[in-house]
């Protein structure tokens, strides 16, 4: 039985920087304060709580734990298929008992995946939210984390990006290399920065690039800001104009990128519940992003 949580106390007919509505992080923190156990689902992600602590965060725009394990070469997709969790033995336990992965790596990878998803999902305007009381994450539970600690970590990461290059709109803009970047042979680039430069084609945004490379979204955003600070990636003028509408540029991901349609079937809660949220994004740039992603997924 699922419980409907009202998304906002204030009517949100006129979203603006002054009345930005509640973020998913606000909703999760309120539920955690009541020591709730279950799954919070919004248009931007899914958060699992147990006794008020966060067990797992998922965002359609961030690579999940199995993706990170496969991309790092620690497991093959075949391993994952063989080990795919069952309700009686969730994936975490199956991985550990198989002896194919150490507990330390699994814990670190889980924390990485969770931080990455939290960075994308928690600061977003929550939109309509559903809470499924008592739901447990399919992966299982290791190293739960306090929601305030997690939100503080998200804020620190955002501050780090802005310290490197204070242009938040770069997070959602297509990555365009500067004219002389190809010719530059500096050795000061990291492996990640080289990978970003290799696939930046002037149309892909940092999140599309992250998905293409199977890298954490935050690590990719960090590389893009560093490349921009070094003048290797162009910094376009802020399209929203200075301090007119803060909300769109403050968001690292357009909310619709993580719309319910994008969440995989295993994440959708309570069969028969209708999906809330906009099916068709009003912003044409968001629509373009979604088309781009669909095209990329079709090629994978």
């Amino acid at each position: 039985m699922s419980l409907q949580v009202r998304p906002a106390l204030v009517p949100r007919r006129r979203p603006s920087a002054l009345a930005p509505g509640r973020t998913l992080g606000d909703v999760v923190e309120a539920l955690a304060a009541e020591h709730r156990t279950g799954a919070v689902q919004s248009t931007t992600g899914v958060v699992h709580l147990a006794e008020g602590e966060v067990l797992q965060v998922q965002s359609a725009a961030a690579p999940d734990l199995p993706t990170l394990l496969v991309r790092s070469g620690r497991l093959t997709e075949q391993d994952l298929l063989e080990l795919s969790g069952t309700p009686r033995e969730p994936l975490f336990e199956a991985l550990l008992s198989s002896g194919r992965i150490g507990r330390g790596v699994l814990e670190l990878c889980h924390l990485s995946a969770m931080s990455d998803a939290a960075f994308l999902a928690l600061p977003q305007d929550s939109g309509p939210v559903r809470f499924q009381q008592g739901a447990h994450p399919q992966l299982g539970a290791i190293r739960p984390i306090d929601v305030r600690t997690l939100r503080a970590a998200v804020a620190q990461r955002r501050a780090l990006l802005d310290r490197i290059w204070p242009c938040p709109w770069l997070d959602t803009a297509p990555v365009r290399l500067s004219a002389n970047t190809e010719a530059r042979t500096d050795t000061g680039w990291s492996r990640g920065q080289r990978a970003v430069v290799r696939v930046a084609d002037g149309r892909r945004t940092p999140l599309v690039i992250a998905r293409l490379l199977g890298r954490p979204a935050f690590a990719t955003l960090l590389d893009v800001r560093r490349l921009a600070a070094a003048g290797l990636v162009e910094t376009p003028p802020d399209r929203a104009g200075p301090a007119v509408v803060a909300a769109p540029v403050r968001s690292p991901v357009p909310a619709a990128l993580a719309a319910p349609t994008a969440l995989s079937a295993e994440l959708s809660l309570g069969a028969g519940e209708s999906a809330h949220g906009p099916a068709v994004p009003a912003d044409p740039e968001v629509a373009l992003l979604i088309r781009l992603r669909a095209a990329l997924e079709a090629r994978l």
């Binding site: 070469g73 670190l108 990485s112």
Partner: peptide, 10 residues
């Protein structure tokens, strides 16, 4: 620094 292979940054 811990080198985990998935950019854990730890």
């Amino acid at each position: 620094f811990v080198e985990a292979g998935f950019e854990s940054g730890t």
